[in-house]
């Protein structure tokens, strides 16, 4: 697809997300609904990833740029809060590190447990098959 058409598709999805949020009242921001909509369109093969790759690669590659203007809102923050900035900065950084560690540990713990169980199940299946085979051989004797 040509780039303008790709953009039109992505913006149509954004608009649909906004519509579902503002008019229908889905309690999620429009862009997150849009992400889910695009995922559904990709999974149902209505859109192929290559068809929108020009636009999607551009946005994915330069994602941080679009966060720059909102971050300038720091200028609008009141003095009473700005005066506490060393403490707040420290807290934000510390909490983020703790959150990464916690989220990672819990995910990894449950992944390992699932993999362990799947391995056990696999092994039990193999053992039972082997036992069955041995049984039939034994029977023929």
């Amino acid at each position: 697809m040509r780039i303008p058409l790709q953009l039109a598709v992505i913006f149509a999805i954004c608009l649909a997300g906004e519509f579902l949020h503002r008019i229908v009242g889905v309690p999620l921001p429009g862009n997150i609904i849009g992400m889910v909509l695009l995922l559904i369109l990709l999974c149902t093969k209505v859109i192929k990833p290559e068809q929108i790759s020009g636009v999607s690669n551009f946005f994915l590659k330069h994602l941080a740029l679009f966060f720059l203007p909102p971050s300038i809102a720091i200028m609008a923050v009141g003095d009473d809060i700005l005066s506490k900035w060393p403490l707040l900065l420290f807290l934000c950084i510390a909490f983020t590190l703790i959150t990464i560690a916690m989220g990672g540990w819990v995910t990894q713990f449950f992944i390992r447990r699932q993999e362990y169980r799947e391995n056990l199940a696999l092994r039990a299946e193999r053992l039972s098959k082997r036992a069955e085979r041995n049984g039939t051989i034994g029977g023929e004797k």
Binding site: N31, M35, L38, V55, F59, L65, P70
Partner: peptide
């Protein structure tokens, strides 16, 4: 922000295309 808002608006399509790596 008169100009900055134009770029902030692009947060929306930028979030939507996160569906591609997810897919």
């Amino acid at each position: 922000n008169v100009g900055g808002d134009y770029i902030s608006v692009m947060l929306s399509p930028a979030t939507v295309v996160l569906a591609v790596p997810l897919y």
